[in-house]
Amino acid sequence: MLEPVEDGPAVVACNTCRHSKTEREDAQGQRGGARLVEALRAVQSGEERFAGIAVQEMPCLFACGDFCTVHVRAPGKIGYVMGRFEPGEEAATAILDYTLLLSQSEHGQVPFRQWPQGVKGHFITRTPPAGFVAA
């Protein structure tokens, strides 16, 4: 049921997410989550600054009221679940940029003024790292 992965900065994308609020799949019959995983991997592999961020995927993050959801995380840092993305290069770049900032921060809290425009309005929850709660 659980698959071990590297414990480092990562974007965990739901590969079964809906394409949009009203559509389960796109015109080619692919789920939005699968498209977002493709976009994340393409951007990550083409940008050296994202080399230290893993793109991981799993079925269902249980944020089904939203669509195209990801969990961004780094060891010992607050993580975030974000969603309602258009599954493409622009969203993938913003998600990876935010994950990079999160991984470089002291506790996983990135000042709002540094947020990439593409993640604003997409936050669903924040998750404390194991053994901690946010103060």
Rank of each mutant, 00 (worst) to 15 (best):
M1C: 09
M1S: 11
P4N: 10
V5W: 03
E6F: 04
D7E: 12
D7G: 08
V12P: 02
V12A: 03
V12M: 06
N15A: 12
S20F: 02
T22A: 12
T22D: 14
T22Q: 09
E23I: 01
E23P: 00
E23R: 14
D26Y: 11
G29P: 07
Q30T: 06
R31H: 15
G33N: 14
A34P: 06
A34Q: 15
R35N: 13
R35E: 10
V37T: 01
L40G: 08
R41G: 02
A42D: 01
A42Q: 13
A42N: 01
Q44C: 06
A51Q: 14
V55C: 10
V55T: 09
M58T: 13
L61V: 00
C68I: 11
C68Y: 03
V72H: 10
R73V: 07
R73M: 06
R73A: 13
A74D: 01
P75D: 01
G79N: 07
Y80W: 12
V81S: 09
V81T: 14
M82G: 00
R84A: 03
F85Y: 11
A92C: 10
A92Q: 06
L96T: 01
D97T: 12
T99A: 10
Q104H: 14
Q109S: 08
V110H: 09
P111G: 03
R113Y: 11
G118Y: 07
G118L: 11
F123R: 14
F123D: 05
T125L: 12
R126V: 05
T127G: 00
P129I: 01
P129G: 01
A130V: 04
A130L: 02
V133G: 09
V133Q: 14
A135I: 06
A135G: 14
